[in-house]
Nucleic acid binder design. Structure first.
Lengths: 105, 105
DNA sequence: ATCGTACATCGTCGATAGACGATTAAGGAA
DNA sequence: TTCCTTAATCGTCTATCGACGATGTACGAT
């Protein structure tokens, strides 16, 4: 019953997810385990500053973990955070899905 | 492998979900089964035109079904659509979640 | 100390989102 | 028909998003 994720936080995460470039970044990180910023820049048709901005947004939404490695920034998915938000989202959507109109009579 | 939901569509649905007022509308519909526009207006601290706009966005994202009932518009959740998008989202997030960094060696 | 690399941040600009009031469209009641 | 109710749409305004180039910052090599 305690949702453990506020509406506000859920909205923030949904906003972070709701962009094609950011979904691509997540896919990339899921595929490779981790990436430095430059690798993401090489894959996406976007400039370095734009990619950096997207990474920041994902990080602020709590979906990514970023570590400094010398002059490089290494990013990886925050699997735990995804577990939490996945459950929150799934619960939410499941409620909506379960809400069949039962006035079929 | 066929995702059955394009990235584009997923992004559109995430955008539709990523607004507090629209989450509230979905909650309301889940709780009541269906609502006419005016009921939603009475519950939310927003004007009729704004609420109507939000309902339109949710409908265009394929999350709501709207039926005309005399001069009223009756909205209800499209449970089937939620089933589909829930699976799409859940799959996506599950991949991210499952992607533990296994380079612990 | 100087230079090069890698990334973050700043400033800007056009496009989009979100709110509102006003108007329009359409059904029901007199 | 005329009027009232309900809701969709239009026009406008502000705020935020998303892209970019330019600049700043920090580390590594020379």
């Amino acid at each position: 019953m305690p949702s453990s994720v506020t509406d506000e936080r859920l909205v923030a995460q949904l906003k972070a997810l709701a962009h094609p470039a950011r979904l691509k970044i997540l896919d990339l990180l899921a595929a490779r385990g981790d990436c430095i910023c430059g690798e993401v820049v090489n894959v996406l048709p976007l400039t370095q500053s734009t990619v950096s901005q997207h990474l920041k947004i994902l990080k602020e939404a709590g979906l990514l973990i970023g570590t400094i490695d010398g002059t490089r920034s290494c990013y990886s998915l925050d699997s735990q955070a995804f577990g939490v938000s996945q459950r929150a989202l799934t619960n939410r959507l499941a409620v909506y899905e379960a809400c069949e109109e039962d006035d079929e009579g």
